[in-house]
Simulated scan of single mutants.
Amino acid sequence: MREMALFAVIRLVLWAGIWWVLTLFDIGVMLAGVLAALIAMLISILFLNRVRDAAAMRWKAADDKRRERHPDDVDEDAEAEDSFLDAEAAAADGTHGVEVTGTSRATDASHSGPGELPELPAEDPENTSADGR
C-alpha cells in the first residue's frame, strides 16, 4: 500500500508543479491542467520505473493473496459468455457439438451461415416495371 500511495503522491506533486509553471506562462488554467497531466504522465513513464514497478508488484501480491483466499469465486456471467463464444467458434469451425461445463451443446440448426443462404427466385422480366421494382 505504501508503494501505491508514494507513486500517487509523486505523480500528483509532479502534476501540480508542472501546472503551476504552465499557469505562470499564462497558458490558461484548463489547458495548463491538460498539458500538465500529459507531461506528468510522460515523466512518470520515463523516470519513475522503480516506484511504478514496486507499486505494481505490491498490487499483484495483494491480488494473488485474494485469489488464494477465495479460489472458488466464479463469475457466472463470464462463464456464460465464454461458453457462448466457444459454441460460436465451434460453429464457425464446422463442428456441431461443443463440450461446455460438462454438457454437450449443439449449434442451432435453424441458423443460416453465409454459405447456407436460401436461393432467391429468378426475376420475371415481364412483371417488372420500368423503374426496376
Rank of each mutant, 00 (worst) to 15 (best):
Ala5Arg: 11
Val100Met: 09
Ser44Ile: 00
Val51Lys: 03
Ala91Asp: 06
Ala62Ser: 09
Thr95His: 11
Arg50Asn: 10
Lys65Trp: 05
Asp108Trp: 08
Leu24Asn: 05
Ala40Glu: 00
Val51Phe: 04
Phe47Tyr: 13
Gly102Asp: 07
Ser83Leu: 07
Pro71Gly: 09
Ser44Asn: 04
Gly33Val: 01
Ala61Thr: 09
Leu14Asp: 05
Asp124Arg: 07
Ala40His: 02
Ala122Gln: 11
Thr95Asp: 11
Arg66Pro: 01
His96Asp: 14
Phe25Gln: 03
Thr23Lys: 01
Glu81Ile: 15
Asp77Tyr: 15
Ala36Asp: 01
Ala109Pro: 15
Trp19Ile: 01
Ile39Gly: 00
Ala16Gln: 05
Ala32Thr: 01
Gly94Trp: 03
Phe47Cys: 09
Gly28Pro: 00
Gly17Leu: 08
Arg50Trp: 07
Arg52Thr: 12
Asp72Cys: 05
Phe47Lys: 07
Arg67Tyr: 07
Ala54Gly: 08
Leu48Ala: 12
Gly17Asp: 02
Ala89Lys: 08
Ala37Trp: 04
Thr128Asp: 07
Phe25Tyr: 07
Pro118Ile: 03
Ile45Gln: 15
Ser44Ala: 11
Val100Leu: 14
Gly97Ala: 14
Arg2Phe: 10
Asp73Arg: 15
Ala90Arg: 01
Trp20Ser: 03
Trp59Gly: 05
Thr103Gln: 14
Gly97Asn: 12
Thr128Cys: 08
Ala106Arg: 14
Arg133Trp: 08
Val34Leu: 13
Arg2Asp: 12
Ala62Tyr: 06
Leu117Glu: 15
Val34Pro: 02
Ala32Asn: 00
Val13Leu: 15
Glu99Asn: 13
Ser104Glu: 10
Ala32Val: 00
Lys60Cys: 02
Phe84Val: 14
Leu22Ile: 01
Ser83Phe: 03
Trp15Met: 04
Trp59Met: 11
Val29Pro: 00
Asp75Gln: 09
Val29Thr: 15
Asp131His: 08
Val98Met: 14
Trp15Ile: 04
Pro121Tyr: 07
Ala87Thr: 10
Glu116Val: 10
Lys60Ala: 10
Glu68Cys: 03
Gly17Ser: 06
Phe25Gly: 04
Ala62Pro: 02
Met1Ala: 12
Val21Ile: 07
Glu79Tyr: 12
Ile43Ser: 04
Phe47His: 04
Glu76Gly: 11
Ala62Thr: 09
His70Thr: 11
Ala62Trp: 03
Leu35Thr: 00
Thr95Arg: 12
Leu120Val: 14
Leu31Asn: 04
Gly17Tyr: 01
Thr101Gly: 08
Trp20His: 04
Ser110His: 12
Pro114Ser: 12
Asp53Val: 11
Gly94Asp: 04
Asp73Phe: 14
Ala87His: 03
Val34Lys: 03
Val74Trp: 04
Ala8Trp: 09
Met30Ile: 11
Ala54Thr: 10
Glu76Ile: 15
Asp77His: 15
Lys65Val: 06
Lys65Phe: 06
Leu85Phe: 11
Glu76Phe: 14
Pro114Glu: 12
Glu79Gln: 15
Phe7Ser: 05
Leu35Pro: 00
Gly17Gln: 02
Asn49Lys: 14
Ser110Trp: 05
Asp124Tyr: 09
Leu22Met: 03
Leu31Phe: 03
